[in-house]
């Protein structure tokens, strides 16, 4: 554990809590992509199958259980409890265009051709693009509530901080996971446009609204 990794995890945790608070306080899931949340649920479920096979630390186990639990609760809020506020018309990204290539890639490019390892690789690749339905939804509606922007900023920062963690671990421990690093770079790049809008608008007290 190093400071970048810890800050990354805390940023990830903050993102999830911000999203839950937004939904709970406003009693609404408007502007939130249910498809992205389903992809994140797939990511966590696939990646944390190792809860059953290897124990790393109490911290590690608690975080995994929290991530899995909250993402399914988020899906419950979107598709059941606050279904009336869910904007399905604008959540029209075709997720099969992500799942199929990512699944194929996980089969072809992995550390070891073993079932759990392929599933882990699939989760890493899928996570890198799982935010696309959410970003697509914002580009379609042309706006994002400020609280949704905070959520996305925290979620994007998490992987960017992991990149710092991997640079640190490479020099400090000789640790290098090419699959995680490449996927992490892709994931962070996808947020760059959003980061720019966040810094130039949200931080100055304005809401994100794109020209029609």
């Amino acid at each position: 554990m190093n400071i970048f990794r810890l800050c990354g995890d805390m940023s990830h945790l903050a993102a999830i809590i911000i999203l839950l608070l937004k939904m709970w306080k406003t009693r609404s899931v408007a502007g939130i992509s249910g498809k992205s949340q389903i992809l994140f649920a797939t990511v966590f479920t696939a990646r944390y199958l190792d809860l059953f096979t290897s124990f790393i630390s109490i911290y590690n186990t608690c975080m995994k259980v929290f991530f899995i639990g909250t993402v399914y609760f988020t899906i419950y809020l979107i598709y059941m409890k606050f279904k009336a506020t869910y904007d399905s018309n604008h959540d029209s990204f075709r997720v099969e265009f992500l799942i199929v290539p990512v699944g194929g890639l996980a089969f072809l490019v992995n550390h070891e051709f073993a079932p759990l390892e392929i599933i882990w690789t699939f989760s890493i690749y899928l996570e890198s693009v799982a935010i696309l339905p959410q970003l697509f939804m914002i580009s379609k509606t042309g706006e994002a509530e400020t609280i949704t922007s905070h959520y996305l900023f925290a979620l994007g920062s998490y992987r960017a901080l992991y990149l710092c963690n991997w640079i640190y671990r490479y020099y400090a421990e000789g640790f290098f996971d090419l699959i995680a690093v490449v996927a992490g770079v892709v994931q962070t790049i996808l947020y760059c446009d959003f980061f720019y809008l966040y810094i130039t608008k949200v931080m100055k007290g304005k809401k994100i609204s794109l020209p029609a």
Binding site: I56, N60, L116, Y162, N165, A180
Partner: peptide
């Protein structure tokens, strides 16, 4: 279940 490489990150 096959041998699983340790992935210590989240």
């Amino acid at each position: 279940l096959s041998e699983f490489l340790p992935h210590d990150e989240l």
